[in-house]
Design a binder for these strands. Structure first.
Length: 139
DNA sequence: GCCAACGTTGGC
DNA sequence: GCCAACGTTGGC
């Protein structure tokens, strides 16, 4: 199973809002970046991802699950933009801050550190396990 | 609020 | 196809 990271600004779309969407989840629309889109196209049902707060919060606060494969982004007027749907899987007992990630040498190669602007990122299984451990959940 | 990093656009 | 100009993102 592949692992991912989804960024969201908490005042735009928060973890609580995703939780409120329940099992149906949320269409992760509005992504207008080819790399991010290609990452979503590569996702499989059941793939897990981190839910990261950018700008405000700057921490991984939860774990999400891909619940619908990539499809046409309903908010796009052109057919070049696709997105998946995601739903909340579990919250992190201990949110893992960007500061923590940056100071952990094992996480120095995370895309979040190397290319912080990419809004949908791949996460290696090693990174996944380390962050899960830091966050107080089983990988 | 600033600015570095990155992606996109458009003129040539 | 190159690259300067511009816009956006996101950490600080």
């Amino acid at each position: 199973m592949a692992h991912w990271l989804f960024k969201s600004e908490p005042d735009v779309f928060s973890w609580e809002m995703l939780l409120a969407k329940g099992k149906t989840g949320e269409e992760w629309s509005g992504i207008r970046n080819y790399q991010a889109r290609n990452n979503m196209r590569a996702m499989k049902l059941g793939d897990k991802g981190f839910f990261y707060y950018s700008n405000q919060g700057k921490a991984i606060v939860g774990i999400v699950e891909v619940c619908k494969l990539a499809h046409r982004d309903s908010t796009s007027h052109v057919d070049s933009w696709d997105c998946v749907d995601i739903r909340a899987a579990s919250g992190l007992p201990k949110p893992v801050s960007l500061e923590t990630i940056k100071t952990d040498r094992r996480l120095a190669d995370m895309v979040l550190v190397k290319n912080s602007r990419l809004s949908v990122q791949p996460v290696t299984s090693e990174e996944w396990e380390i962050v899960c451990a830091l966050g107080g959940v089983k990988a």
